[in-house]
């Protein structure tokens, strides 16, 4: 279920590294636990995010949850399609439902992330 080529965080974000830029999204486990996602609050392009700190909010019908940045850097792209239609994250969390792209400040932080197998174990799947 969780693509092998991605990295994962303990706060349930997936991370796709492409050179100096990381694409972030919510894992399938997270979107499934949240249920119908109806609101996304994401940082603007140019905003600085810090590993381990909140960078946005995702709200399902039932509850609000913070999004935590798995890596530090500067936001270089935001998925406006997802903020306009948050259910996109439920439908296609690893594809069309990506959240933001971040230009990495410290590429060594990637070493702190989990592999697909480690994440699978982490969520007890």
């Amino acid at each position: 279920m969780n693509p092998e080529e991605l990295n994962y965080s303990e706060t349930h974000e997936w991370i796709k590294i492409d050179g100096k830029v990381a694409t972030l999204g919510l894992t399938d486990h997270a979107q499934s636990e949240l249920g119908d996602i109806v609101y996304l609050e994401l940082p603007g392009v140019g905003a600085e995010v810090t590993a381990g700190s909140e960078f946005g909010v995702v709200e399902s019908v039932k509850a609000a949850s913070d999004l935590y940045a798995p890596l530090s850097g500067k936001v270089v792209a935001v998925n406006d399609a997802a903020t306009q239609d948050p259910a996109l994250v439920n439908r296609d969390c690893y594809g069309e439902g990506w959240l933001v792209k971040v230009e990495l400040k410290d590429p060594s932080e990637v070493e702190n992330l989990k592999t697909a197998a480690e994440y699978k174990e982490f969520i007890g799947a």
């Binding site: 249920g35 119908d36 109806v38 399902s60 019908v61 039932k62």
Partner: peptide, 8 residues
């Protein structure tokens, strides 16, 4: 049960 197919 809090939900089956989804709240919406």
């Amino acid at each position: 049960p809090v939900q089956y197919s989804g709240i919406i």
